[in-house]
Simulated scan of single mutants.
Amino acid sequence: MHIDYLCDHPELIEELAELNFKEWGQYKPEDTLASRTERMRAACGKGAIPSVVVAIEDGKLLGGALLIDSDMDARPQLTPWLAGVYVKAEQRGRGIASQLVNRIVEEAAALGVPQLYLYTDAAQSLYARLGWEVLEEMEYDGLPVTVMKRSISQ
């Protein structure tokens, strides 16, 4: 298994967009799979914000994560964000999510980012183990979430 830029594997863009859409699409009813796919394609930077990284094994997509400017309209002052961390259900429990998160943190550090943000409704303990701190609890898109931050040492 290795982590690579999605832009180096364009054949995986639609699959990752579909996984993200199935996981989180219900929170944005106006969203479509086509618009999610276009946003994923547009986010496919490399060594920049936005960037997308993917976990791949034997040519198959296992999961992905994004580094983006903003992931929460309610907190426009917070930037940049770790977003869309997703690992296929049958691949969970192998540490893939942790590797994806750590890779995004490394990408942010290489860009000189001092703080990185995320929000989650269910994975607070994972992120806490990886050095993230709770910033606030709130409701967003009708879902109780935890906003977290990670200071990045330069």
Rank of each mutant, 00 (worst) to 15 (best):
G63V: 02
L33A: 11
A83L: 10
K60C: 13
A122D: 13
E139M: 01
Y86H: 13
A48H: 02
A55K: 03
G112K: 05
W132S: 01
W132E: 02
G59K: 03
Q77W: 04
M138Q: 08
E90V: 05
D31K: 11
A89I: 07
L78F: 12
Y140R: 02
P114A: 14
E106T: 13
V52Q: 03
P29S: 10
F21R: 06
R41I: 03
W24P: 02
Q115L: 14
R92I: 06
V113I: 15
R129G: 03
P50F: 04
R94H: 15
E57K: 14
K46N: 12
R92N: 03
A108V: 08
D141I: 01
P29T: 12
W24I: 03
V134M: 10
Y140I: 01
G95L: 10
Q124Y: 01
D31W: 03
G84Q: 04
W81E: 02
M138C: 15
W24E: 03
R92S: 09
P50E: 08
L33R: 12
W24L: 10
L135Q: 08
P29I: 08
S98H: 04
Y140N: 05
I96M: 06
Y117A: 01
R36N: 14
L82G: 02
F21W: 15
E57V: 05
V101I: 15
A89T: 11
V53L: 13
T79D: 00
G112H: 05
V54T: 06
G64E: 11
R39N: 09
R41L: 11
R103A: 11
A55H: 08
G131K: 07
D121N: 13
A123F: 01
G93I: 03
L130V: 09
R94G: 00
L66F: 13
L82F: 10
K28S: 11
P144Y: 05
L116P: 02
G59I: 03
V105W: 04
L135Y: 13
E136R: 10
